[in-house]
């Protein structure tokens, strides 16, 4: 089971980034082996459009089964849902705190985008 977290850092102490598409990095945590991997999302930081779509593909390619982030827009949601990735939103301050929430079963699965797209 692999979980993707949006973050600006590279460790579990790093802050959880509330943005999905334009988060600087994804920290992929493997619950079975308790190891982590960091994937850069920098190319999307300055994308004019479609950042959420691209980011969703990056997460899909990482092999993550779940995503924990602050917010998720409609286009990213469509791609993530199509790729079979479960989406959880959290306002935890750090990746570690969000991971704790996930393990404790405190995060509810998002069934729809919780923010408007930038074009809306």
């Amino acid at each position: 089971m692999r979980i993707a977290f949006t973050t600006s850092g590279e460790t579990l102490d790093a802050p959880l980034d509330s943005r999905f598409g334009r988060a600087p990095k994804f920290l992929i945590y493997d619950l079975d082996t308790n190891t982590l991997e960091v994937i850069d999302n920098g190319q999307n930081l300055n994308a004019a459009q479609g950042a959420g779509i691209q980011a969703a593909q990056t997460v899909a390619r990482s092999g993550a089964n779940s995503l924990v982030t602050g917010h998720c827009g409609p286009k990213a949601f469509r791609v993530l849902a199509a790729a079979g990735i479960k989406i959880f939103t959290s306002d935890a301050p750090t990746v570690a705190a969000a991971l704790e929430q996930y393990r404790a079963g405190k995060l509810a699965e998002a069934k729809a985008a919780d923010v408007e797209g930038h074009w809306a």
């Binding site: 994308a47 779509i53 791609v79 199509a82």
Partner: peptide, 18 residues
């Protein structure tokens, strides 16, 4: 160039507004 078509493992998503 506009990210309007996305290929996943077994499906293709299009985003007409992009």
């Amino acid at each position: 160039r506009f990210g309007a078509i996305v290929v996943l493992a077994d499906q293709v998503l299009t985003f007409p507004e992009l």
